[in-house]
């Protein structure tokens, strides 16, 4: 079986190209993905020694996330756990928000827009992403700021008397996170919806289905693989975002990645940072798998 695959692979790509592909793919997976994660795991399991020496294996770093520093007054590490939970829940909310926002866009692009209209619309979606992520975050910060456009408009229309602090209320942060990953949600969904035979939508309508029923019974079940790959990417990236929370987060709101960043950079405690990062990664994977199980999505469908 395995030999058969290799033989086929070589027949298809030729000896030189086949070998080159295998080397590149192994390098990518091995050196760029697996090795760094393994070394991260290794760090997370070692005692932190300020001298830079390699410490012994310990679970102390993981303990710290749950119980806090030894001798602390609280029985649990409420501060970090709260940030962790908040990050996960906020990432789920951003994902759901993005899903609601992007599904109509993807449906419009995939089934309604044709020809020139489609190209213009797709371009309008893509062009803002030529701008660097940090610049976009700052732009949002300005728009949501006390003297920003949104406050100016709301005050001008008489809806507000004084500027509302969108940044303290984290609205700017969620908008920024949502906006940052719109394309990652739209395009996988668009890809699938575009391949849906329009006659099926008409057939459902012809058989008496109102529009919402057509979406519930025909389009969404069909688009499930695209929805799940889009949602997975947005969730993973939101939970792991650093720039947007750093720039758009209110003074009191920490994102879990910021804590990890602090351990690595400010604290210089790589072992502690690694443990936090591993916890975040594992939790995100478990959550994604749980959602996939809940909505009966197969791993194989995601690639579609």
């Amino acid at each position: 079986m395995k030999n058969g695959f290799l033989k086929n692979f070589y027949q298809h790509n030729g000896k030189v190209m086949g070998t080159a592909l295998l080397v590149i793919i192994s390098f990518w997976i091995g050196v760029l993905i697996i090795l760094p994660q393994l070394s991260m795991l290794d760090y997370s399991l070692r005692e932190y020694l300020p001298s830079g020496e390699v410490g012994d294996y310990t679970l102390k770093n993981y303990r710290h996330l749950i119980y806090g520093a030894e001798g602390a007054s609280d029985p649990y590490n409420y501060v970090d756990l709260k940030v962790f939970m908040r990050t996960i829940i906020a990432a789920i909310c951003v994902t759901i928000f993005n899903l609601i926002l992007c599904y109509p866009i993807a449906f419009f692009l995939g089934q309604v827009a044709k020809g020139m209209k489609l190209r213009v619309f797709a371009l309008l979606l893509i062009i803002p992403y030529w701008i660097n992520e940090i610049l976009r975050a700052f732009a949002l910060k300005i728009i949501f700021g006390a003297t920003g456009m949104i406050n100016a408009v709301l005050i001008g229309m008489g809806i507000l008397d004084e500027p509302f602090d969108f940044i303290r209320a984290d609205i700017a942060l969620y908008a920024g996170l949502g906006y940052a990953y719109i394309l990652l949600m739209v395009f996988p969904m668009y890809n699938v919806i575009e391949s849906l035979d329009g006659n099926q939508i008409e057939a459902a309508r012809d058989l008496g289905a109102p529009w919402w029923r057509i979406h519930a019974r025909i389009v969404i079940p069909y688009a499930k693989p695209g929805i799940s790959s889009g949602a997975t990417m947005v969730f993973m990236l939101s939970a792991g975002a650093l720039a947007a929370p750093q720039i758009l987060g209110g003074p009191s709101s920490l994102w879990f990645t910021q804590i990890i960043y602090q351990w690595f950079n400010d604290g210089g405690n790589w072992s502690q940072g690694a443990a936090y990062a591993i916890v975040l990664l594992t939790s995100c994977i478990i959550i994604v798998l749980a959602f996939m199980k809940l909505f009966k999505v197969n791993m194989g469908d995601i690639g579609k």
């Binding site: 035979d197 006659n199 008409e202 012809d206 058989l207 008496g208 289905a209 109102p210 069909y222």
Partner: peptide
Amino acid sequence: PNKRPTALIFQNLALFPLMKVWENITFS
């Protein structure tokens, strides 16, 4: 079309691929 007393059979049939045959038939 959803309110007319007509039913259309499409050139490519447009059966719903994710529904079983009985669900397809009784969709209306």
